[in-house]
Computed example of a mutant assay.
Amino acid sequence: MDVLESTGYIQREQDILRPRHPVTTLADPVIRFNQLITLPQAAIVEQGFAEQAWHAAAPTFNSKILGPHFEDLARTFTRRYAHTLLPGGLPGPVGTTEVADPAARTKHEVDVIALALGERPQAPRARTALIGEAKATAARRGTGDLKRLEHIRGLLTDQGYDTTGTTLALFSLHGFYPDVTESAADRDGLLLVDLPGLYGIG
């Protein structure tokens, strides 16, 4: 596994806030596509039913390939370019986490979380620079997504993390509803990144 990781075939995402086993995935989405879509559907495609095969594979493609790849792009963007947009400048470690919600008896997955520069992963009461959600679904992102992030930020505050300077970030493949863009224009600490923005062309 170490050799595969060092050569870039697999990548490991460590929970930034808590000691858990890292999530290991195949790094190349094309290889994931081959393993999850091409090989299982090969017999159907060879029989001439490519359209039906693609229709059957679409949920797997969206949830196991497109979605995770978009989340990975959002984390890469945060590591390399978000310092030009964040009030605090360069962030520290970037990754993912799960935030417990005792009142709702559930956990919230956080697609993108960045600690403040100088903070160490899994340190108690660490300062957080950014928490974000990355969605590759066809729907635009709206106030519901923003309220979810605000709720997660409140949970982190209750758990002792310093969120006073935390930027909320929404990454969307298909843009945002007007109410969210208007909110971003009227307040600090809210970052909206669409696909052109993710690639630095918007």
Rank of each mutant, 00 (worst) to 15 (best):
D2E: 08
D2Y: 00
L4P: 05
E5L: 09
S6E: 12
T7K: 10
Q11G: 01
Q14W: 01
P19F: 03
R20H: 10
H21V: 09
P22L: 03
V23T: 15
V23C: 09
D28N: 15
P29G: 05
V30G: 12
F33G: 05
N34I: 12
I37N: 03
T38D: 10
T38I: 14
L39T: 11
L39R: 11
A42M: 13
A43M: 09
A43K: 14
G48A: 12
A50V: 13
A50R: 14
A53V: 09
W54E: 13
A57Y: 04
A57H: 04
A58I: 08
P59H: 01
T60I: 12
S63W: 06
I65M: 07
I65Q: 06
L66R: 14
G67H: 03
G67I: 04
P68M: 07
H69D: 13
E71Y: 02
D72V: 12
R75K: 11
T76V: 08
H83G: 13
H83D: 15
T84R: 14
T84D: 10
L86Q: 01
P87H: 04
G88Q: 12
T96H: 02
V99S: 06
V99T: 04
A100R: 15
A100S: 08
D101Q: 05
P102L: 10
P102T: 10
A103S: 13
K107R: 10
A116Q: 08
L117G: 03
E119S: 08
Q122E: 14
R125W: 07
A126E: 01
A126L: 03
R127T: 06
A129G: 05
A134P: 00
K135L: 08
A136L: 01
A138F: 06
A138T: 10
A138Y: 05
A138K: 14
A139T: 09
G142Y: 09
T143F: 15
D145W: 04
R148T: 15
G154H: 12
G154F: 07
L156F: 02
T157I: 06
D158F: 06
Q159I: 00
G160D: 03
T164Y: 03
T166A: 00
P178T: 04
E182D: 13
A184T: 01
G189P: 07
L190V: 11
G202Y: 00
